[in-house]
Amino acid sequence: MIPPVVSIVAKSGTGKTTLVEKLIAEMKQRGYRVGAVKHDAHNFEIDHAGKDSWRLTQAGADTMLITSPAKIAMVKKNPQAQEPPIAETIQTYFGDVDIVLTEGFKRSTMPKIEVHRRERSAELLCRSEIHDPTLIAVASDEPLDIDVPVYDINDAQGLCDLIVARFLA
């Protein structure tokens, strides 16, 4: 069974990570199992040069796991450097959670909450040139007159209420 997914989107430096952190903490406090996916448009590295895991990947391992009693981490090379569709990633890795919160994926068809800061941008990503029908709410530091609910940028509890009512009830 694939869990519901809500994507937190915004322009860089707006506060996506901060909001996702608050939402995860609130969802966990309510007893939900939460998965998180961070989109990185660049070529990130979690291995560090010289470490055993890095050496195994450098040797040519297509999939490399680090495992311990506390956690598991995986480095898996994407064939032809193609990022798999987010739906495929969620189906493969998140079968044991109640909900997945993603950060980024602004061009996806997943339901979205946009983070808006007046000082960062006058326009919303999901309500400017393109009207994104997947926008379900905005977390903003200013009042907005738009066609979806607007929450205070720090109202993780209210946004969780929306997510629970819409996707977990």
Rank of each mutant, 00 (worst) to 15 (best):
L135R: 09
A122S: 06
A61Q: 12
P143H: 02
C126I: 11
V75T: 05
E45D: 14
L101V: 12
A137C: 02
E88P: 03
P111E: 04
E21T: 04
M64S: 05
D147C: 11
Q29N: 13
Q82F: 01
P84C: 01
D40E: 14
A139L: 12
L101P: 06
K51E: 11
P85L: 00
Q91K: 15
W54V: 10
G50T: 13
V37P: 15
D96Y: 00
N78G: 00
H42G: 03
P69C: 08
R118I: 12
W54F: 14
A139N: 04
L101T: 10
D47S: 03
P79K: 03
I136A: 05
D141K: 02
A73V: 10
T89P: 04
L125G: 07
G35F: 09
K106T: 12
G95K: 11
A59L: 10
P69A: 09
F105I: 12
A25Y: 03
D52V: 08
D96C: 04
I146R: 04
V97G: 05
S53H: 11
Y32C: 05
R55T: 09
I99E: 04
E45C: 10
P111G: 08
T57D: 01
R127E: 07
I146G: 04
K77Y: 11
P143K: 09
K28W: 10
I46T: 02
F44D: 14
I99N: 13
Q80V: 09
S108Y: 09
E83W: 05
K38D: 08
F44S: 13
P149T: 15
P149A: 15
K112F: 08
A25R: 03
I86W: 05
D40C: 09
D145A: 02
L65Y: 07
A59I: 04
